[in-house]
Amino acid sequence: MANKSVSKTAGTKKSFVDRMGGQQFIVLIIVIVMFIFFSAMSPGFRKYTTVVSILDYSYYIALMAIGVTFPLLTGGVDLSIGTGLICYSLIGGLLVRQHGMPVAVGMIVTILIGVIFGIINGCLVALMDLPPFLATLCTCMITRGFGAFVVGGYGIPWPAAGQDGGWFRSIFKIQVGGQNIPIGFLWILLLVAIMSFVLNHTKMGRYTRAIGSNKEATRLSGVNVKFYHIMAYVICGLFAGLAAIAYSAIFATVQPGSGAGFEMDAIGGAIVGGVSMSGAVGNVTGTLIGVFVICLLKTGLPFIGLTANWQQIITGFVLIVAVLIDIFKRKKESGK
């Protein structure tokens, strides 16, 4: 008889919004509303070229954000992705520019260095028990200095379109009849689909969430927690490497010493998209949508006459709201 009373309450009805994916759905609507708003406010915004430039701008942030979703889900964070991205791109670009290696080799090296730093971060956190914030803050500084050191302080231009090796820029953008086609977006969608699958239907993803939910319990269940914890950072590093490629392909030159703050756009996107700072809750589809909120703010605000300073202030407020929503949701869950 006690059973009955519980199963009655167990089948809680889901609201329309929940069925549509909860926060993701709301954020998607916000993205659309923002787009309509900026289009209505500024004629310059509703041009095809603007859409392409927003997308251009979104690739490296989206890639970083997809990656950092994994450490976030374990309850950690990776602050090194921004400066890391620049560092990996500089080293890869240097090989191409000064050592005459093929662009493909430069790209592979770029990605590999990302993976290596992912392994380093993972080991610091999972094996040596450093707090993720601290560990990745350190690697953030290391990558920043290391990148600048390797190239000797000069910016590195990866081959431009039309130059020898410039083909790699067409991974993200091709020209058809004088028009730019942002095909990079398809790659992003494909990667989101793959990582979504990884997160929701494979052990890797399941254990990533499990670690964020209760690491000790996961360990006691016989899961190789250390390995999967490291892997979350390796995935993050891999995607920082991919982001480095996207960044190199979109921008003319890569400047040493830059990159600090990129990670905040990515982490912010993930949080706006519903990834919980305390782990376990969230999804890469949400992350992607959240990234577009950030990107629209960055690209849209100048069109209505607000300066870069205003962008930062407004983005900061948006993040506070997102985090508050996360906290509010958790409170509601724990306190029936």
């Binding site: 699958f197 052990k203 399941r206 969430r209 499990a210 209760n214 319990a217 269940s221 899961v223 376990a280």
Partner: peptide, 30 residues
């Protein structure tokens, strides 16, 4: 265990089979 060891964010079945999930290829067979 004396202290409950559960993963609050996962489902009941996911908790029971954690660490030895059924699989179809690489996909977890929920």
């Amino acid at each position: 265990h004396q202290e409950l060891n559960m993963l609050g964010h996962l489902t009941v079945a996911q908790n029971i089979f954690i660490g030895r999930e059924f699989k179809k290829g690489i996909r977890i067979d929920d």
